[in-house]
Design a protein around this nucleic acid. Structure first.
Length: 140
DNA sequence: GCCAACGTTGGC
DNA sequence: GCCAACGTTGGC
């Protein structure tokens, strides 16, 4: 199973909003960027992803699961845009901040750091494990 | 709220 | 097909 990272502004659609959707989850709609769309087209059911709060928060707060593969984005006005469905799986033991990620040399290549504007991005197995490990350690 | 960085658009 | 102009994103 591959790993991903989904970004959203908590003021618009935050972790709590996805949790509120329950197991039925939600379309990850509104993506209008080809790289992000292509990432979603590569997802399979059961893939997991980090949920990151951009703009305010700047931290990874939870883990989502892909529950439907790419299908047309119901909010799109043309047929270029696809999206997947995701549901909240669990919150991290504690949020992992962007500052922490930047401070860890092993995470310096994360798309989150290198290409902050990409709203849906792949995460390597190593990055995934390292972020989870950070989340399990008390904040320093 | 500002603005740098990036992606997209459209005139040529 | 190039590239200037524009709009959007997101860290600060």
């Amino acid at each position: 199973m591959a790993h991903w990272l989904f970004k959203s502004e908590p003021d618009v659609f935050g972790w709590d909003d996805l949790v509120a959707k329950g197991d039925a989850g939600s379309e990850w709609d509104g993506v209008r960027n080809y790289q992000a769309r292509n990432a979603m087209r590569d997802m399979v059911i059961g893939d997991t992803g980090f949920f990151y709060h951009s703009r305010s928060g700047l931290e990874i707060v939870g883990i989502v699961e892909v529950i439907a593969t790419a299908h047309p984005d119901s909010t799109a006005t043309d047929d270029r845009w696809d999206c997947v469905d995701v549901r909240a799986l669990r919150a991290l033991p504690r949020p992992v901040t962007l500052d922490e990620i930047k401070a860890d040399v092993r995470l310096a290549d994360m798309a989150l750091v290198k290409n902050p504007r990409l709203s849906v991005q792949p995460v390597t197995d190593l990055e995934w494990a390292l972020v989870l490990k950070l989340a399990e350690q008390p904040s320093t």
